[in-house]
Design a protein around this nucleic acid. Structure first.
Length: 535
RNA sequence: GGCCCCUUCGUCUAUCGGUUAGGACGCCAGGUUUUCAUCCUGGAAACAGGAGUUCGAUUCUCCUAGGGGCUGCCA
């Protein structure tokens, strides 16, 4: 088993496992990510896409994007574009999909509409499905009545279908008449009574469910579209999908899908299944949802999203300055672990290390601090010139003109205290313009007549220097301290305050070197002028 | 409620019957640094509970508890 959890040897004799094993060696891996375009893709969806992508790459297979838009009432403009853009930003764009094309298209289910009906008909003819004429209202009433009677989970199944309006209870002529008259109807699967459905899930092992606990799900809707259940089986089959890797929320309907493969006669080529653990919210209970981000102060979406209906804005990792590689690395580790102690993985390293067997079973709680840490790590790995160039552009957009050299110096100076690229400018603002105000607390504690005198003295000394570079400045500064028989703590804070207006920050000598002589002297003059001499 | 899935430090996780239960984030302490950040060193911190199988269970089985998902003519 290249990618099964350990399976008892005996079970290998089961026909479909043999088939699987055969599949794996002979058939090219094809996986799909199948979101429905009902809104932006959130990070849980991105992770599902990522695992599909990694699995495909690992096995030299194909990663397919399929848009599951069989519910026309839930269409949200821009959602599909968002999905594609999000995947591209993350660096996991599909090999086949609505944008890219491919040999198995079309890749939108709405454009595949004509394909599904024949399979629904096939099932009806084979006796595995039936027409049902019950209206939504009638079903609603059945459910609420059952609920009042103490049965919260009324099901349309082998017990109840005999009392409903369907082709099993109606005379054949009646059924035919209704259909010819254009009466609305759905097609439901006809599940057997008391039969065990079992399948092997790559991350969970054997899963078994009795058909008594399943219901006769609608396969084909009144509007002429298939439901997800039918469409996903038909498409996976037609598209040659070998492995279905999806979220755990699909686990309860997996047995139904198994039955569909069987009834459609496709059991021999059924894809393997892997149900991924869910992403949980950091606080409280439940899975991560789209509102958690704004509530807890982090994005849940890869890209910013503006709801078309009301212009509500949801923040995105991209816009907040996260690097896609960091985002991806973080996501990969939410529910998967290579078993080594390495945590920083390039995309290629993730591909090489990834396996579904190492995917965890339990849901993973999202930790924003860790995400920030990943970003910090990746930020430092960026080439200096690239960061400097970004800084320069950002500074420019805010009206500062930066030389390449100065941008580079600033980047070097500030990278250690940055988590986001934008921190470089934020933390280095004082290098671009003189302070307007001086930190109140530092002024009160460190700025006295003595400190003032030191600044005056230093100003004179610095004015004598020709080469304004850090090492020289430091040397002169220390010489001065020795002459004065005083310590760094008596002079340094005042100097920093005068130069930057702040009580803390990077090396003073590097700061002065970057500012240059005229600016340094000007700032010292300004501070001497503006700051009162107290104490 | 029913069905299914899950359960190791606060969080993400390693352990595929025998370990002082390891790492990372976060937290705390110390060191480096004029300060902040970085960096280095150290620390606190976990196998949900109970039975069983076994010479031996965090690891296998069962039960309990807790958590999660599903329970639509949504995906």
């Amino acid at each position: 088993m290249a990618w099964g959890r350990s399976v008892p040897p005996l079970l290998l004799s089961l026909p479909f496992l043999k088939r699987s094993a055969h599949n794996m060696s002979a058939q090219a891996v094809r996986v799909r990510f199948a979101p429905s375009p009902t809104g932006p893709l959130h990070m849980g969806g991105v992770r599902t896409a990522l695992y599909n992508y990694l699995f495909a790459r690992k096995h030299q297979g194909s990663f397919v994007l399929r848009i599951e838009d069989t519910d026309q009432t839930r269409y949200v403009p821009g959602a599909e574009e968002y999905i594609q853009e999000a995947l591209s930003w993350c660096g996991i764009a599909p090999d086949e999909g609505p944008q890219k094309g491919g040999d198995y298209g079309p890749y939108r289910q709405s454009e595949r509409k004509h394909l599904y009906r024949q399979y629904a008909d096939q099932l009806v003819e084979a006796g595995y499905a039936y027409y049902a004429f019950d209206t939504s209202e009638e079903l609603e009433e059945m459910r609420s009545m059952a609920k009042k009677a103490g049965t919260p989970n009324w099901q349309y199944n082998h017990v109840t279908r005999g009392r409903m309006k369907n082709s099993l209870t109606l005379a054949a002529s009646d059924t035919e008449k209704r259909i010819n008259d254009g009466d609305p109807y759905v097609i439901r699967i006809k599940l057997p009574r008391n039969e065990e459905v079992k399948f092997y899930d790559i991350v969970r092992g054997w899963v078994r469910v009795n058909t008594n606990n399943m219901d006769d799900k609608v396969l084909f809707k009144g509007d002429g579209m298939p439901t997800y259940h039918l469409a996903n089986i038909v498409d996976d089959h037609l598209m040659g999908i070998t492995h279905v890797i999806r979220g755990e929320e699909w686990l309860p309907s997996a047995p139904l899908h198994i039955m569909l493969y069987r009834y459609l006669g496709w059991e021999e080529s059924r894809p393997s299944m892997a149900h991924l653990p869910l992403l949980l919210k950091p606080d409280g209970n439940g899975k991560l949802s789209k509102r958690d981000g704004d509530r807890l102060g982090f994005p849940v979406f890869p890209l910013e999203w503006k709801t078309p209906a009301n212009d509500e804005v949801f923040s995105g990792y991209r816009e907040q300055g996260y690097l896609p590689e960091a985002f991806l690395n973080m996501l990969a580790f939410l529910g998967w672990n290579p078993g080594t102690e390495q945590e920083i993985f390039s995309k290629q390293e993730l591909i090489d290390a990834f396996s579904l067997e190492k995917v965890n079973k339990a849901g993973a709680r999202y930790d924003h601090d860790k995400t920030r840490w990943f970003n910090q790590q990746y930020l430092r790995q960026q080439p200096l010139p690239v960061l400097a160039d970004q800084l320069r552009q950002e500074a420019q957009s805010q009206g500062y003109d930066l030389t390449e050299q100065k941008a580079q110096q600033m980047t070097e100076l500030l990278l250690d205290r940055a988590v986001f690229p934008s921190d470089l400018l934020k933390e280095g603002q004082f290098l671009l313009e003189p302070p307007e105000t001086y930190d109140e607390k530092t002024t009160r504690k460190k700025w006295n007549s003595q400190a003032r005198q030191h600044i005056e003295n230093l100003r004179e000394r610095f004015a004598q220097l020709d080469a304004f570079e850090a090492s020289l400045l430091e040397e002169r500064f220390k010489t001065y301290l020795q002459e004065q028989e005083t310590g760094f703590g008596k002079v340094g804070p005042g100097l920093r305050l005068a130069l930057t207006g702040k009580g803390m920050g990077p090396s003073l000598f590097a700061i002065m070197a970057i500012l240059g002589k005229p600016e340094t002297l000007a700032r010292l003059d300004k501070a001497l002028e503006k700051l009162p001499a107290h104490g």
